[in-house]
Design a protein around this nucleic acid. Structure first.
Length: 275
DNA sequence: AGACGATGCGGAC
DNA sequence: TCCGCCTCGTCTT
């Protein structure tokens, strides 16, 4: 489920159906102990930054300050939407259930589900680099991201997973971005030209935005002649189409795709197309 | 019934 | 560098 595109997709969908409502919150599974702090507050905004979601709740009673719900899905977290109210009994381990006036949303398996004040939220944001899916704070032209990537002598394949440099890219997109950019993942960030860094940023924007639009990862659409790439079986019906991630043969040149570990994750690349 | 893996990441060593 | 978190569909026994 979760690279940056899934998070922004969830923000868009939930914004439409939850924002403006007074939300009933509960933790059926019981592992979210602060859940009562949010109950019956009005949800006024949902914001996504990289792989993080922030839900802003209006003050209740005499309180003055907004309260933020911070969610990070981690590796296997996910949302389930219930269109009919009241929602059916929770299925599986539901950490948080939010019931609005129109829909109910269940959250299961997140790495992070916590209540934050403004300060706490700012501290999370301070650890994140620019997000190519955002239009402000250098989500714009990518100069800040290029600066951060260029400042490191570590391999670009690892840098793209470092959320403090660029926020939102995960293991699938890093492989696809570097393939389409024609960059060998082992090259140092400091070694990349301004043009290459601009290209990495542009591809990050383009590929992630397509992921938001499509509701899945489909990078095969960006390589001419790769229309026949087969969709990989996905866990929840959604399947992805990739050019190098979990592929054996290069779609462009036919060379065998190489695999290795970089940034503690499996990296896929084409030794011929990525120099 | 049990093992395994997955688009993530912080913390211990 | 490795472990553990904590979830669940799929595959194996």
């Amino acid at each position: 489920m979760p690279e940056g595109h899934s998070i922004h997709r969830a923000a868009i969908d939930q914004r439409r159906e939850l924002v403006g409502d007074s939300i009933r919150t509960s933790s059926p599974q019981g592992r979210f102990e602060e859940v009562g702090l949010l109950d019956r507050r009005v949800l006024v905004e949902i914001d996504a930054w990289g792989k993080h979601l922030f839900y802003r709740f209006a003050p209740r009673g005499r309180a003055r300050k907004d309260t933020w719900l911070h969610v990070h899905l981690g590796l296997y977290g996910g949302f389930t939407r219930h269109a009919s109210l009241p929602p059916p009994p929770p299925r599986g381990a539901v950490r948080l259930r939010m019931i609005g006036a129109r829909v109910a949303i269940d959250l299961a398996g997140p790495t992070v589900c916590e209540v934050l004040d403004d300060k706490g939220r700012a501290a999370v944001l301070a650890r994140l680099g620019p997000d190519p899916l955002r239009k402000t704070r250098d989500g714009g032209d990518g100069r800040e991201a290029a600066r951060r990537l260029h400042a490191s002598g570590r391999p670009i394949g690892g840098l793209l997973l470092d959320q403090s440099l660029v926020a939102g890219i995960g293991n699938v997109y890093r492989a696809e971005i570097l393939f389409l950019a024609g960059i060998d993942p082992a090259r140092a960030g400091s070694e990349l030209s301004a043009g290459e860094l601009a290209n990495v940023w542009g591809l990050s924007k383009t590929l992630l935005a397509a992921g938001v639009r499509d509701g899945r990862i489909d990078t095969a659409q960006f390589l001419r002649g790769a229309d026949d790439v087969e969709a990989m079986p996905g866990r929840r019906g959604r399947s992805k189409r990739t050019l190098v991630y979990h592929q054996h043969t290069c779609r462009r040149c036919g060379e065998a795709i190489r695999t290795g570990t970089m940034g503690a994750r499996t990296l896929f690349w084409c030794p011929h197309c990525q120099q």
